[in-house]
């Protein structure tokens, strides 16, 4: 049984069908790449899997570790071990990276039960109480992870994504992944906006985690990232369907030849905007 099993999934946004029947299986130890033209539905698929309320599943099935993923609210999906690195992460002013991530770790430890108090003395007490992680203990873990991602320590005390550069946001997404240790990570264009060094750092961050305890679905437009994170398989998504796939070097071919030949081969109409 694969960790993530998607079966004939259809997704609509505002009444319009965007994902038109996708089946895909991703297991731990595996990296799948997902490529495809702008607007083909890559982010829609990610949001639908993460449980964004705007995206309606009209039919199909998704199992996560054998359980019905679609029946879970978004926070439960995350606690079960699903992680989405957003293409455009939201800024949350007033909530620091450190406090946010520690709350997320403790929410997972508490199994989604709402425990009181997230600041001050009570937060310290929470550390001594049961399996909640204390501020001090957590800060140590956070700082170690920040160091490996070349993020300055002050990021722990900055407001989440508030005023972060594009590249900083992407690195903080990977930081969250490293701290939360998911079993399946979807990375939606985590490479876009990164300089060459940052891309390497981020790829190393992903590679450290992919293995017996994590699988990944990596969405990208460029083969460069896939030089660092080697996928076993590259899927092509067009017009809401997986039209074809190839081995690890397929990305190179796509980058060289574009998508038109695939459109012709599989009889997919050329979108007006791209003409």
């Amino acid at each position: 049984m694969a960790t993530l099993e998607i079966e004939d999934l259809h997704v609509s946004v505002e009444g319009k069908e965007i994902i038109k029947g996708i089946s895909l299986q991703v297991s731990k130890n595996e990296v799948h790449a997902l490529m495809g033209p702008n607007g083909s539905g890559k982010s829609t698929l990610s949001f639908a899997l993460a449980g964004h309320p705007k995206y309606t599943i009209t039919s199909g099935k998704v199992l996560f570790k054998g359980e019905d993923l679609l029946a879970m609210p978004p926070d439960e999906r995350a606690r079960a071990g699903l992680f989405l690195a957003f293409q455009y992460p939201a800024a949350v002013p007033g909530v620091t990276v450190g406090n946010f991530l520690r709350t997320a770790v403790n929410a997972k430890r508490a199994g989604g039960k709402v425990l009181k108090a997230i600041t001050g003395k009570d937060a310290e007490a929470a550390g001594k109480n049961g399996n909640q992680i204390s501020a001090r203990e957590f800060l140590k873990i956070l700082k170690e992870n920040m160091r490996t991602l070349s993020l300055k320590e002050d990021f722990a005390f900055r407001y989440l994504n508030d005023g972060f550069s594009g590249g900083e946001k992407k690195r903080v997404e990977i930081l969250q992944m490293a701290v939360l240790k998911p079993e399946l990570a979807i990375l939606d264009e985590t490479d876009s906006g990164l300089d060459i060094d940052a891309m390497k750092t981020v790829a190393e961050g992903v590679n450290r985690l992919v293995g017996p305890s994590m699988g990944a679905l990596v969405i990208t437009h460029y083969q460069r990232l896939l030089n660092y994170i080697r996928p076993q398989i590259v899927h092509v998504l067009m017009e809401g369907k997986l039209v074809t796939s190839g081995g690890p070097d397929f990305a190179q071919e796509l980058e060289a030849r574009g998508y038109d030949w695939i459109r012709q081969k599989f009889g997919i109409a050329t979108p007006v905007a791209a003409a």
Binding site: P73, D75, A90, V92, V95, F100
Partner: peptide, 27 residues
């Protein structure tokens, strides 16, 4: 979007709402 972002990290809705509201005052 902020609410979904926090929930997508495993934070339950009531806690996520509280964090956003309290965060609102920080400035």
């Amino acid at each position: 979007e902020e609410l979904f972002y926090l929930k997508s990290r495993g934070i339950p809705e009531v806690l996520a709402r509280k964090m956003i509201v309290l965060g609102f005052y920080e400035e």
